[in-house]
Simulated assay, not measured.
Amino acid sequence: MPDRSGLRLRFNRSLIVFTHCILCLIPTLLVLLSGTQLPAQVAGNAGGLVCDEGFENKNGSCQRTDLPENAYLTGSSYGSGWECNHGFQNVGEICEEIIVPKNAYLASTGDQWKCNRLFQRVGEECEELIAPENGYVETRFGAQEIHCNWGFRKENQDCVAIEVPKNGRLSDKRSSDGWVCFRGYRAAESGCEPVAVPQHAYLAPETYSGWKCERGFRANRDRCVAVLVPSNAHLNRRGDGWECNQPFTRQNDKCTENVP
């Protein structure tokens, strides 16, 4: 009987080669069917790399001819498709190196520079930010500000001492004067004057007058008058007025019953 093993082996090898060729043609067929073009293709037996229009062979790879120096491709179809390298900036479609001035540093983004602490930008340089006497520099939210020490307030670019009047003290809050009066006194043009507390009132430093009426009374200029509560009514929550009881309603200065 004839030996069929050799024939079967040659047939299997031919099938493998044919299958491999088919698999190699599939990507090319997909590209042709989609209507797109490959940026580069191998030129067969001629050797070398042939790039499409707008690309050129650089060190064995196809790169864009309009890509400026010190730039890289972003792979995005939007915009120019390239960006400048770290430490360079786009100036007229050219990537120029960022010159960092004295007392400055290159930002982490690589596309700008910033001044060091205690320096501020003036044009293209960094000038020292000098705090006035009795003041200091504070950085808040990325901005440097000059503040004055305790007991001083800012006037223009200087820190001047706060003159606290008699019966007053330095304020913990940043006020225009920098001081507040003691309890029992209120601010006036001459300084801190004693608060005259009327009858049925008590000292209350949180009010402008410095005093507050007791419950059941209400302020009327410089005195406290009693709240007249009509029948079927009661004092309100603050104690300086009245409200009708349920089911009565207010009509002028009286409380009348609702009649169905």
Rank of each mutant, 00 (worst) to 15 (best):
3 D>H: 07
3 D>K: 07
4 R>H: 09
6 G>N: 09
6 G>E: 06
7 L>N: 10
8 R>T: 11
11 F>I: 06
12 N>P: 02
15 L>T: 08
17 V>Q: 09
18 F>G: 15
19 T>C: 14
21 C>T: 14
22 I>R: 14
23 L>D: 06
24 C>E: 15
24 C>L: 15
27 P>K: 05
31 V>H: 04
33 L>D: 11
37 Q>W: 07
38 L>P: 10
39 P>H: 11
40 A>M: 06
41 Q>H: 06
44 G>H: 12
44 G>K: 14
45 N>P: 10
47 G>P: 08
48 G>D: 13
49 L>E: 06
53 E>A: 06
55 F>T: 11
56 E>C: 05
62 C>V: 10
62 C>G: 10
63 Q>E: 12
64 R>I: 04
67 L>F: 11
73 L>A: 14
74 T>M: 00
76 S>E: 14
76 S>L: 08
81 G>A: 06
81 G>N: 03
81 G>Y: 03
83 E>V: 08
83 E>P: 02
84 C>G: 05
84 C>D: 04
85 N>F: 03
86 H>T: 06
87 G>A: 06
90 N>F: 02
90 N>W: 04
92 G>P: 01
93 E>K: 12
97 E>M: 12
101 P>V: 01
103 N>R: 13
105 Y>N: 12
105 Y>D: 11
106 L>V: 12
106 L>T: 09
109 T>A: 08
110 G>L: 08
112 Q>E: 05
114 K>D: 05
116 N>G: 01
120 Q>I: 13
121 R>G: 01
122 V>S: 13
123 G>T: 05
129 L>K: 07
130 I>W: 00
131 A>M: 02
131 A>T: 03
131 A>N: 08
133 E>F: 13
134 N>T: 09
134 N>K: 15
134 N>L: 13
136 Y>P: 02
137 V>K: 02
139 T>H: 00
142 G>V: 00
144 Q>M: 02
144 Q>C: 01
146 I>F: 12
146 I>M: 15
147 H>R: 15
150 W>L: 04
152 F>N: 03
155 E>W: 05
157 Q>R: 13
158 D>G: 01
158 D>V: 13
159 C>R: 12
164 V>T: 04
165 P>H: 01
168 G>T: 02
171 S>R: 00
174 R>H: 04
175 S>P: 03
177 D>A: 07
179 W>P: 02
181 C>V: 00
188 A>H: 01
189 E>A: 13
190 S>P: 00
191 G>V: 00
191 G>R: 01
192 C>P: 05
192 C>H: 00
193 E>S: 08
193 E>P: 07
195 V>F: 10
198 P>S: 06
200 H>K: 14
203 L>H: 12
203 L>A: 09
204 A>M: 09
206 E>Y: 02
207 T>L: 10
208 Y>W: 15
210 G>C: 12
212 K>A: 14
213 C>N: 05
217 F>G: 05
217 F>H: 14
220 N>F: 06
223 R>E: 07
224 C>Q: 07
228 L>E: 10
229 V>D: 02
231 S>Q: 13
232 N>A: 00
234 H>V: 08
235 L>F: 11
238 R>F: 11
239 G>K: 04
242 W>L: 02
243 E>C: 04
246 Q>K: 12
248 F>V: 00
252 N>G: 04
255 C>G: 05
259 V>M: 07
259 V>L: 06
